[in-house]
Design a protein around this nucleic acid. Structure first.
Lengths: 211, 211
DNA sequence: AGGCTAACGCAAGGCGCCTTGCTTTACATC
DNA sequence: GATGTAAAGCAAGGCGCCTTGCGTTAGCCT
């Protein structure tokens, strides 16, 4: 006897259409983002996503292995196009724009969730999280290198170090202190890291002093 | 009928001595640090700590409410004395020493666990985690202020910003990238944040160029 | 010593993450 | 249209965090 599909509760628009393969994947990722937006990171349980997508929990575990992976997959497909690398011809402006965009991303619930999940180590499976951020930071390093080549920065500048000095504080605000993540903050950071904190007898590089 | 205490398995040195109050607290915190050192943060389950301390799980929940709180309590009692604020008369050396010490702390399993737990937000109970780090960073700001007063740094220097620029990258390495946290790294960071990345015609401030 | 009370032990259970063994079904292929 | 197979459904269960209700006891106080 084949049990009839449970009669959809009146108001429930979704007769459990059997989705499979790519259709199911898309539906689940969409449902994940939805649940995430509605109930936050903590409220995004595998069961909730499964119900929202009209799919069995086991299927999620089979395809994504862990809750973390699932959410990460959903998020990275969304937040991927962001963060273009500007090329204005001035390091300061490039960096300011890029890290302002990063700050905007991290101020987003999704950006914060992405970062937060990235902080949770997981030795078991190949990690797509570290790559995600390192790739983005590597793009920042490119801008620094261009600045060095143009002679805007000291020739012995360590691009990776500069990028870490810029991204680290943003990450920290998002993860730990919860302090506001505005574009102004990113801008001040860039000025500090490029210009330093030493007394300067000449006016700061090319930036109209921010204040 | 009073059930006799379960005959200690041969080799098990601990007849379940009934501990209570302060004795129990101390025993549990010690056991927590022990389990933490042996099995890592993920392996530190409430059950494991309870067994190691010879105490019932329920008691831990009653006293500490959550696993997080328990571990945090155990850790902060340990890692507290660390991080003295140096005062050499030179900002650079003060900051280098202080943040090298922070790097050493974060390279520790316990330091990393402390930071990692701090990144997990918990809206429910009063948080002792954020204060822990903000207090430590505030100490760093003191050193920067001294530098400004001494004229070593520009008068419009934002101490909080400088401290965030120094601590952020260390936190990020500990939490996200997992890159090595050496004292050399802290030193380079200090040089970058104080000196900036702009080309300098005069030799860098007072530091023998690191390289 | 006896008695009070807060502190513990204990059992049961809920929820979430995750696994496993087995059945059912969608989809492609012949 | 029959058939084969991989993908999905389903049920059961383990583990960890956490809660609750109730019995037991340690430790203090008189």
């Amino acid at each position: 006897m084949v049990p009839a599909p449970p009669p959809a509760a009146p108001g429930e628009p979704a007769p459990p259409l059997r989705r499979r393969g790519e259709r199911m994947r898309a539906a689940v990722l969409a449902a994940t983002v939805g649940v995430l937006a509605e109930h936050g990171l903590a409220g995004t349980t595998v069961g909730a996503v499964a119900r929202a997508a009209g799919v069995h929990e086991t299927s999620l575990y089979r395809r994504w292995r862990t809750r973390e992976n699932l959410i990460l997959d959903a998020l990275s497909e969304q937040a991927d196009a962001a963060l273009p690398v500007p090329d204005t011809g001035r390091v300061r402006d490039d960096l300011a724009a890029y890290f302002a965009a990063l700050a905007r991303l991290l101020a987003t619930a999704q950006g914060e969730a992405l970062l937060r999940l990235s902080a949770e180590r997981d030795e078991t499976l190949p990690d797509r999280r570290l790559p995600y951020w390192t790739e983005r930071l590597e793009r920042g390093a490119v801008m620094v290198r261009r600045g060095v080549e143009r002679g805007e920065l000291a020739p012995d500048t360590d691009p990776a170090l500069v990028v870490e000095a810029l991204a680290g504080p943003l990450f920290t605000r998002a993860l730990i202190s919860g302090a506001p993540l505005g574009e102004a903050y990113a801008s001040h950071l860039v000025d500090l890291v490029l210009g330093g904190a030493l007394p300067r007898d000449r006016p700061a590089p090319e930036t109209p002093a921010p204040e």
